[in-house]
Design a protein around this nucleic acid. Structure first.
Lengths: 218, 218
DNA sequence: GGCTTAAGTAACCACGCGGTTACTCCTGAC
DNA sequence: GTCAGGAGTAACCGCGTGGTTACTTAAGCC
């Protein structure tokens, strides 16, 4: 799609029309703003400035601040689900597959810290946005079902214990990485050392794999 | 200390003077306000209203909103350290002591959800308040040292594996409970069931103990 | 080419915000 | 008894907020 030609206005770039591009710019700006300041501290004026888009358009596309935040959450969940769908675990031996899932989860949190902060913000608000979402089914991770299959196969093979609840295990895999990354600033301050160096992250990554794999031992 | 007698003003209770009581009321109100709304969304006007104290006094005691939030964090840390100091683990067998610590940690998070939310808020702000605190030493948990001793004794007794990093273990013990409680609203929404019922909490509690104790098996 | 819809703009509004000013008066110390 | 300091009050200020109003104009369709 070519950019239309139009006389430039003083001090502003030529107005163009591209709804998809505008919405994407707004979502990216809103993600940064809500991540940095939380829901109450974030400013719609600032989102508009960051996106270089008129504030009226934010209300046109998303309705209000709550609708904007829900759109940010939905996109955030879509991203992790998309990344999870690229894991191909079914053809792997159960221990290798679970280990792969554990490492993927931690690596995802390391590369996407905004996911952690946005989730914490939404939990502080008692998930009131997610509860209104029409995409909750898409947010449910199919990996819990995958994990249940792996645990069943592993128990049958005698390489996993038999009494593992896949939901509890999935939550624990997430917990071990999420807490470490989301709380890294206060943990580093209190322990008096940087827990976010590449070495520290590698140590934590291997520790998490060890905790989970040792828990699954028969 | 007796309450001084003074003529009541129209529509307001008699003004009394008690700095300690005022500070305590302000901190309690601020804890509730920051817990519910985060730092940016919390309002100093609302804190004053909740505490039934003039806003000027908040600035008199705490300087500004940032100083108020730091005071709330320091009190929050003081509370968990006080509760931890009542754990008497040294005389217990290492497995029983570690299990006691694990259960205590989860139970504390269940009973003090504001601790989780305030910590998440401070981490979103990159621990900028904690970094300015003059009480960081008091926030460092002595339990890490206690845990190191237990791991050493347990390994010598042959009931624990020998290669456990006490800091990583302590973080994992906190992670398994913190994530579950702090993310309960979104997890419950996405899994389509209430993960905060007494049964669900008991299941989670036992799961965490199992994960940690099985990890420590030689 | 004209018409309709929607993308986009600029300015505006009422209100709440964090913090301050200017004071009163309680209380403790000398 | 007096005085100074601090607890406490009421009103105020400049600014930013979420959201709205009233418009222009690009672009697609018939």
């Amino acid at each position: 799609m070519h950019a239309p030609v139009r006389q430039a206005k003083a001090k502003s770039r030529p107005a163009q029309r591209d709804a998809e591009r505008s919405r994407a710019a707004i979502l990216a700006a809103a993600t940064a703003e809500f991540t940095a300041h939380g829901f109450g501290g974030a400013s719609v004026n600032e989102v508009a400035a960051r996106a270089a888009i008129n504030k009226r358009m934010i209300y046109h596309y998303y309705g209000n601040k709550e609708g904007l935040f829900l759109a940010v959450l939905e996109e955030t969940y879509a991203r992790i689900r998309s990344a999870e769908s690229e894991l191909c675990l079914a053809h792997l031996a159960p221990p290798e597959a679970v280990r792969r899932l554990v490492l993927f989860t931690f690596d995802y949190f390391v590369k996407n810290p905004e996911f952690l902060t946005l989730l914490n913000t939404e939990n502080m608000l008692h998930a009131r946005h997610l509860k209104r979402s029409e995409q909750i089914q898409e947010m449910h991770s199919p990996l819990v079902g995958t994990l249940a299959e792996l645990l069943k196969r592993g128990a049958a093979d005698g390489v996993f214990r038999e009494d593992v609840d896949p939901v509890q295990l999935y939550i624990s895999i997430a917990a071990l990485g999420f807490f470490y990354m989301a709380n890294n600033p206060t943990l580093s301050t209190i322990f008096g050392r940087n827990l976010a160096t590449p070495e520290a992250l590698e140590t934590r990554r291997e520790h998490i794999a060890s905790v989970i794999m040792d828990y699954l031992r028969p």
